[in-house]
């Protein structure tokens, strides 16, 4: 009987996806809903609060540290997203020209930092950049003329965090670009070189357009990831010096766990959420337009 077997199928389907739905509701949908709800209350970190309407948001827009955090977050995004993508592409283009084992070996070298936990990464770099013993200090001294305690200098702190982030995460981008580059048939380059295209022209007219979908993907992944910057900052500068590395998640953390202001922290988190959605949509539209032209 057909209708019955169809019912059976539906039941099986529901049973099979139920665990996922339950998990999703419990650990994702409910907390998200709760966050939005809390942002309209004066709740502490634990426990319920009273409805206060838009008060948290009004306060947020009058809070100087909020603007500093937004600015710093965007500054960090600007320092990392595009450079990280371009560096990844550059390294990938060099690596694909090697062959066999050499290629694999070099690729592993570049990918290695990516598998390190963030704590190890920050330890390594605090040691490398240490004002007294840091192996990078002679280089800094050669360029600037003096040794600099980079994590205590408002001018240097954020760019250094960005540099470390690029060092840490670049291997993944290299990997994505390498697989994309390998997918471009060598025939295209041979045909182009017969047509008299220089390496630069080959890159501009063949490699870049054919790579664009992957480049757009890398840019978008980077953007979302870097907007959520927190770990490196928390471990290296705690937002200092003089709030020069204070970012949005840091603010959420401070309000929620430092000052027991669950409601206000939720409001800032909502703001970060809106920022990520808005910037991602904007970027997606821009990338799509570029890809078409």
């Amino acid at each position: 009987m057909r209708p019955k077997s169809k019912n059976n199928k539906t039941l099986t389907a529901i049973l099979l996806i139920a665990p996922f739905i339950v998990c999703y509701l419990v650990v994702f949908a409910y907390p998200v809903y709760k966050m939005f709800a809390m942002s309209f209350t004066d709740a502490p970190l634990i426990g319920e609060g009273d409805w206060v309407g838009l008060e948290n948001y009004v306060r947020m827009f009058q809070h100087k540290l909020f603007y500093t955090s937004v600015y710093n977050t965007l500054y960090f995004v600007g320092l990392t997203v595009v450079p990280n993508t371009l560096i990844g592409l550059g390294i990938a283009m060099m690596i694909v020209r090697l062959n066999g084992m050499v290629q694999a070996g070099i690729l592993i070298l570049f990918f290695m930092p990516y598998i390190l936990p963030v704590t190890v990464v920050t330890q390594i770099w605090q040691w490398v950049l240490d004002q007294q013993f840091g192996v990078a200090q002679p280089l800094i001294e050669a360029v600037t003329g003096k040794r600099i305690s980079v994590f205590r200098d408002p001018l240097w702190a954020m760019p250094m965090v960005a540099l470390i982030t690029i060092w840490w995460t670049n291997g993944f981008n290299v990997l994505l670009f390498i697989s994309a580059l390998r997918n471009i048939p060598t025939d295209y380059y041979e045909a182009a070189s017969l047509d008299g295209a220089t390496r630069m022209q080959q890159f501009r007219r063949i490699t870049w357009p054919l790579l664009w979908p992957v480049t757009a993907l890398v840019l978008t992944l980077q953007l979302i990831m870097q907007l959520k910057i927190f770990d490196q900052i928390y471990l290296m500068t705690q937002g200092g010096p003089f709030n020069s590395t204070y970012v949005l998640l840091q603010l959420v953390y401070r309000e929620a766990f430092g000052r027991n202001q669950g409601g206000y922290a939720s409001a800032v988190a909502v703001a970060l959420f809106v920022l990520i959605v808005a910037v991602s949509i904007l970027q997606y539209q821009l990338l799509k337009a570029r890809g078409k032209s």
Partner: peptide, 14 residues
């Protein structure tokens, strides 16, 4: 290649 004055049609069309 470019200076030899030859054109090539590839098996894969390229």
């Amino acid at each position: 290649a470019a200076k030899r004055g030859v054109s090539m049609v590839f098996q894969s069309y390229a």
